[in-house]
Simulated assay, not measured.
Amino acid sequence: MDDHRLIWSALTMVLQQAGQQIVAVAASVDALAGTPDPDVVVCELHLPRGPSGTEAVRRLVGRGRRVLVMSGTTDPEMVLDAVEAGAGGFVEKSEDPDCFVTAVDAVGRDGFHVSARLAGYLLEDLRRRPLAVNDLGVRHLRVLRALARGDTAEEVCRDLTVSRADLAKLVTAALEAGRRRRRRYRPSPREREVMILLACEGLSRKEIADRLGIASWTVTSTLENLRGKYVRLHPEVARSIRPSAAALLWAMKLRLCERASAG
């Protein structure tokens, strides 16, 4: 799914030449309704209409579709959010066309395609936001590092002396760990409530406390927690950022006000 006709014309031709059947080309998730179920949906992260990014991936995965995301502008956080939402892989638009064929084949066959770029993102995410001391084992890390170097699945299996089935298990476990890591740092339901009331309705801490029936200090604590999560997810942001400012920025990034008004 994408709105760039030239890219999709070229990509469609390459996939068809590789023996893939294209069942539909659409510019939005909703436009796919009623089309035959494909083995893989290749989804642009920046769709011009309807849900986009993580929400688009989540809807597609919720319909039982395997999703390979692509983008021309690589935002690591957006890519990892898409993986957390259930995407099985990521490919940059600038990649060689053969890479798309390999990725589509892999997602259709194994359910995942960890490109060198995505492997690098997963390793960096692990470094910045570990789940625990043994977030991933030594074998998982060796596989991710090999993929991040650009090694193919066949090369990884040969060099690390693992079977294709074992490699699939290791990569799947690494992706699941990445998803758990993202979920750990996402806003909780209560934190989202506070963000919406602060950013979308412009309420003060006392007004938020009154609306939610909680103490003012609870709102303050919630905002402090939000700041901690936001800074961990966005290392370019100064740790000295005010809690309310972090909550406002995160609400904008998550488009909470748009979603609240639409709901």
Results as ranks from 00 to 15, higher is better:
residue 58 R to Q: 10
residue 82 A to P: 00
residue 49 R to M: 12
residue 232 R to C: 09
residue 25 V to F: 07
residue 20 Q to R: 10
residue 34 G to D: 02
residue 132 A to Y: 11
residue 129 R to N: 07
residue 188 S to A: 13
residue 181 R to Q: 02
residue 18 A to T: 06
residue 46 H to L: 14
residue 201 E to P: 00
residue 18 A to S: 13
residue 249 L to R: 15
residue 90 F to A: 05
residue 61 V to Q: 03
residue 71 S to C: 06
residue 41 V to D: 00
residue 232 R to K: 13
residue 130 P to T: 08
residue 174 A to V: 11
residue 2 D to A: 02
residue 108 G to M: 12
residue 225 N to P: 00
residue 147 L to R: 12
residue 197 L to A: 08
residue 250 W to L: 08
residue 141 L to N: 00
residue 59 R to A: 10
residue 6 L to G: 05
residue 135 D to Q: 10
residue 176 E to T: 06
residue 146 A to K: 07
residue 256 L to G: 05
residue 77 E to S: 14
residue 114 V to T: 12
residue 71 S to D: 01
residue 253 K to M: 12
residue 131 L to N: 02
residue 152 T to D: 04
residue 30 D to I: 08
residue 145 R to T: 02
residue 153 A to F: 14
residue 44 E to P: 00
residue 215 A to R: 00
residue 19 G to C: 13
residue 120 G to Y: 13
residue 21 Q to V: 13
residue 218 T to R: 04
residue 9 S to I: 13
residue 96 D to K: 07
residue 137 G to D: 14
residue 257 C to G: 03
residue 35 T to N: 03
residue 89 G to S: 06
residue 230 Y to F: 15
residue 209 A to T: 00
residue 175 L to V: 14
residue 253 K to P: 00
residue 35 T to H: 12
residue 215 A to S: 05
residue 230 Y to I: 10
residue 163 S to H: 05
residue 208 I to N: 03
residue 64 G to E: 05
residue 89 G to A: 08
residue 226 L to Y: 04
residue 109 R to C: 07
residue 124 E to L: 15
residue 8 W to N: 10
residue 29 V to C: 04
residue 45 L to M: 15
residue 139 R to C: 02
residue 137 G to T: 02
residue 116 A to W: 13
residue 48 P to G: 03
residue 202 G to C: 05
residue 180 R to S: 06
residue 54 T to Q: 12
residue 15 L to A: 09
residue 152 T to K: 02
residue 30 D to R: 14
residue 51 P to I: 15
residue 21 Q to W: 07
residue 31 A to M: 03
residue 175 L to T: 11
residue 5 R to F: 07
residue 244 S to L: 05
residue 33 A to T: 03
residue 235 P to C: 08
residue 149 R to T: 03
residue 161 T to E: 09
residue 208 I to R: 07
residue 227 R to P: 01
residue 56 A to P: 02
residue 161 T to Y: 14
residue 244 S to N: 09
residue 48 P to K: 10
residue 44 E to A: 15
residue 93 K to N: 01
residue 101 V to A: 11
residue 171 V to I: 15
residue 137 G to Y: 08
residue 191 E to V: 02
residue 75 D to R: 15
residue 204 S to M: 04
residue 143 V to W: 01
residue 100 F to H: 09
residue 53 G to I: 05
residue 39 D to W: 05
residue 234 H to Y: 11
residue 19 G to F: 11
residue 130 P to C: 11
residue 61 V to Y: 08
residue 187 P to T: 06
residue 49 R to K: 12
residue 233 L to Y: 04
residue 72 G to F: 03
residue 184 R to M: 12
residue 230 Y to Q: 09
residue 177 A to S: 14
residue 23 V to K: 09
residue 47 L to E: 07
residue 146 A to Q: 03
residue 263 G to Q: 14
residue 222 T to P: 01
residue 260 A to R: 15
residue 38 P to I: 14
residue 175 L to S: 01
residue 239 R to W: 14
residue 126 L to A: 10
residue 262 A to M: 03
residue 210 D to A: 08
residue 33 A to M: 12
residue 258 E to I: 13
residue 115 S to W: 06
residue 145 R to E: 09
residue 87 A to F: 05
residue 241 I to A: 11
residue 176 E to I: 11
residue 48 P to Q: 11
residue 245 A to C: 06
residue 90 F to P: 01
residue 21 Q to I: 12
residue 10 A to Q: 09
residue 1 M to Q: 05
residue 11 L to K: 11
residue 190 R to A: 08
residue 260 A to Y: 15
residue 219 V to A: 01
residue 115 S to T: 14
residue 134 N to Y: 13
residue 164 R to H: 09
residue 254 L to R: 15
